[in-house]
Write a protein that binds this DNA or RNA. Structure first.
Length: 104
DNA sequence: GAAATGACGCGTT
DNA sequence: GAACGCGCCATTT
């Protein structure tokens, strides 16, 4: 399976009303440290739930005043995700294995 | 073919 | 928190 396909699958696997970080997606796809590859896939493939992808700290990856930022914010809140100051609260951040271990 | 670029991550200061 | 540096790597200049 290509890295590209693995990342696509990992992104599509995000449940509605949940979000995941670039790093978590990369790890899930078997590509630890390849967060930038995830970015490239998001830009290339347009049929993905891109709005459920946020930074590792839960922040939206776009500048707070940009159009895509507002769109993502709207779509997330529309799915029941609580966003505060451009940041998704931890409750809605779906963790991968490592984080799951840390979070108990 | 070398240099710059980018919806990033993480440890340090 | 915020600023910096470095790692990462396919694509574009």
């Amino acid at each position: 399976m290509s890295a590209h396909a693995a990342i696509c699958a990992a992104i599509r696997a995000i449940a509605p009303g949940q979000t995941r970080s670039y790093a978590a997606i990369a790890r899930t796809a078997g590509l630890p440290g390849r967060a930038r590859l995830v970015v490239r896939v998001l830009k290339t493939e347009d049929d993905l739930p891109w709005h459920r992808v946020v930074k590792a700290d839960g922040r939206i990856a776009f500048p707070p005043d940009s159009e895509p930022y507002l769109l993502q914010l709207e779509r997330l809140t529309g799915e029941g995700v609580t966003v505060r100051n451009g940041r998704v609260i931890a409750l809605h951040i779906e963790a991968d294995g490592l984080d799951a271990t840390l979070w108990g």
